[in-house]
């Protein structure tokens, strides 16, 4: 059983990444009520932006990361303004928005592949050498530790924003009823734009951290998005805190699930859990 501390640590590390993806996705879904598949590509946007500034242009690491986050957020917001906002104004159905977001995902992946090639890239400068820490019997790398800390900070920040700021209250109001929010004077378009910026920036940051840990590729967003969506559904779709719980639960189930069986079952386990929740608890762990 001396593998147990490492299994727990692995689950927490994976859960932190899923939680960041779920946070951004849930922010957007909770406000606009549609599945934004294009969100997945923003993880790659963040990663490749850092790749360009840090590895190609040789800028400072922290400046590159900041640029990466801002670019992912900005592109997310621009996509909202150019694609989703006009569709929403026309009262387009959820299916239309879903299909549009699929187009956004596909187009962005293709653009990234054209600009940077489809080859897998890593953001770390020194392949294979990184500081490693021993924590309570488990091993964690510097990048994974940073991912954990940043993930926790973002969760806390989002919780505080929702609780104590007017913006957070406006987001909750729009999520509850957009029409009523307009009537009471909330500039819903402006708030939703900001939600897309913040959600996309979180997604971009997740992509950057993954880029430093394992690497980036143009199609990385879809598999991450699927895990984020599963986490959201498990935790309670539209509930930001639920998404976080769902993310960690999913990570634990996946890692403990493949402990004694082959690793090729990992995705099958994740989707089996999704189906079980959809069948028996579709509202998730925490209702919205």
């Amino acid at each position: 059983m001396d593998i147990l501390p490492q299994l727990i640590l692995n689950s927490i590390i994976a859960g932190a990444i899923y939680a960041m993806i779920a946070l951004g996705f849930n922010l957007i879904y909770g406000t606009t009520k549609f599945f934004d598949l294009g969100y997945g590509a923003l993880t790659a946007v963040g990663g490749y932006a850092v790749f360009y500034f840090y590895k190609t242009l040789g800028l400072d690491l922290y400046v590159s990361v900041l640029f990466g986050i801002l670019i992912a957020g900005t592109i997310g917001m621009v996509i909202y303004k150019l694609v989703y906002s006009p569709l929403r104004k026309k009262k387009s159905s959820g299916m239309v928005l879903l299909v549009a977001s699929l187009g956004v995902l596909t187009a962005m992946q293709a653009i990234i592949a054209i600009l940077f090639t489809s080859q897998f890239q890593t953001l770390s400068q020194n392949a294979g050498s990184e500081r490693v820490f021993n924590i309570l019997g488990g091993v964690i790398t510097q990048t994974q530790l940073i991912t954990l800390v940043i993930g926790l900070l973002i969760m806390v920040a989002i919780a505080l924003v929702f609780r104590f700021t007017l913006f957070g209250k406006a987001v909750k109001a729009i999520g509850d009823d957009e029409e009523v929010s307009k009537i009471v004077g909330i500039n819903t378009n402006k708030i939703v734009s900001r939600v897309f910026f913040i959600g996309s920036a979180i997604g971009g940051l997740a992509g950057i951290l993954i880029g430093f840990d394992t690497g980036i590729e143009p199609t990385m967003g879809l598999s991450l998005l699927l895990k984020g969506v599963i986490a959201c559904i498990i935790g309670g779709i539209g509930n930001v805190y639920g998404g976080v719980i769902g993310a960690f639960l999913l990570a634990f189930i996946e890692n403990f699930g493949i402990w004694k069986i082959s690793g090729e079952w990992k995705d099958a386990i994740a989707f089996a859990v999704l189906i079980l929740f959809l069948l028996f608890r579709p509202q998730g762990i925490l209702r919205k």
């Binding site: 593998i3 692995n10 994976a14 394992t214 402990w259 082959s262 690793g263």
Partner: peptide
């Protein structure tokens, strides 16, 4: 024998199973 699919990026659990 640790088997995995193309697209796997997290091998930590597989590695932990065999490292000792």
């Amino acid at each position: 024998t640790q088997k995995f699919n193309t697209g796997t990026r997290d091998f930590k659990t597989n590695i932990d199973e065999v490292k000792n």
